[in-house]
């Protein structure tokens, strides 16, 4: 049960933390969903070629980071709308990944690890998983304690003051966005490695749930952690309930969304009761 929860939660948590970094910098990356997909595909490709899942997940992470770097540089420099650029990426990346898949493997469908190399482990934890935990810890540390995180938060809170202190808006924002790309790529890698296959559309809405978790978690690491665990529990409950009740399946599918909206409203109610208006 705990394991199920962890397995559902970890990729979303990673993506959510990535999104959180970009949001703290004042430029929310809305393309989490497709960046997860991209990370998943590249993880597959590199794992196979390098015969190393660790190299795979790292490459997946880097690939998503690189795509973010290119497109958001264009958006920031071209004074474009960050948000619409993200929507564009959400359409473009799945198309591009499928095209790449059919060019490279002659199929845009499921790609499996046929001779999957054994995952090297440290203390019986697979290295890619260790990599993800490390990345999570790094992001957590970065936003809550490090000097770079301070710059990122300052840029989101008060760009003008940050600028006076010599924090470059472009560099800070693109760095935050790239971190969100890296995290999403790793999240995608986790999905692929846990399935030992790349399945089209493997992200399946997790990027959007991750975005909701950022808001629900009130943009704080602990809050985001709690929110993703909540979503994980809702999903798990829905899966378990399917075996017990004869409720129509689409209603179960709606559950995480309903949970997210309800949680947002409850949170709104609570925070508005505090301050008199």
């Amino acid at each position: 049960m705990i394991q199920s929860l962890l397995q559902y939660t970890l990729p979303i948590l990673l993506a959510s933390f990535g999104g959180l970094v970009s949001d703290l910098a004042g430029t929310l990356n809305i393309a989490l969903e497709s960046l997860i997909l991209l990370g998943a595909f590249v993880t597959y490709v590199v794992s196979i070629h390098a015969q190393s899942p660790l190299a795979g997940i790292m490459a997946g992470s880097l690939a998503s980071g690189a795509v973010v770097l290119v497109f958001y540089t264009l958006a920031l420099k071209g004074r474009a709308n960050i948000f619409v650029t993200g929507l564009g990426l959400n359409l473009l990346i799945p198309g591009a990944v499928a095209t790449a898949s059919s060019l490279m493997y002659g199929t845009r469908g499921v790609l499996r690890f046929d001779n999957f190399p054994l995952q090297p482990t440290v203390l019986s934890v697979p290295l890619p998983l260790l990599f993800s935990y490390a990345m999570l810890a790094c992001i957590w540390y970065l936003i809550s304690a490090s000097s770079a995180g301070l710059r990122i938060r300052a840029m989101g809170l008060h760009p003008h003051v940050a600028q006076i202190r010599g924090v470059s808006p472009f560099r800070t924002r693109i760095a935050a966005l790239v971190i969100s790309g890296l995290a999403c790529g790793a999240a995608g890698g986790l999905l692929v490695l846990s399935l030992r296959a790349y399945v089209p559309n493997v992200s399946a809405g997790r990027g959007w749930i991750a975005l909701a978790a950022i808001y629900l978690g009130k943009r704080r690491p602990w809050g985001v952690l709690a929110a993703t665990v909540l979503f994980g529990a809702a999903e798990l409950a829905a899966n378990i309930a399917q075996g017990m009740f004869a409720l129509p399946s689409p209603l179960f599918m709606a559950l995480p969304y309903v949970a997210a909206v309800t949680a947002l409203i409850i949170q709104g109610l609570i925070s508005h009761r505090k301050k008199p208006s």
């Binding site: 490090s146 000097s147 938060r153 202190r165």
Partner: peptide, 23 residues
Amino acid sequence: IAELTVWENIILGAEELPLVLPV
């Protein structure tokens, strides 16, 4: 920046502080 601590406000952007070190 009202949301940051006093210490964070003081050292924000301090050049000699490496980015990866804790504030």
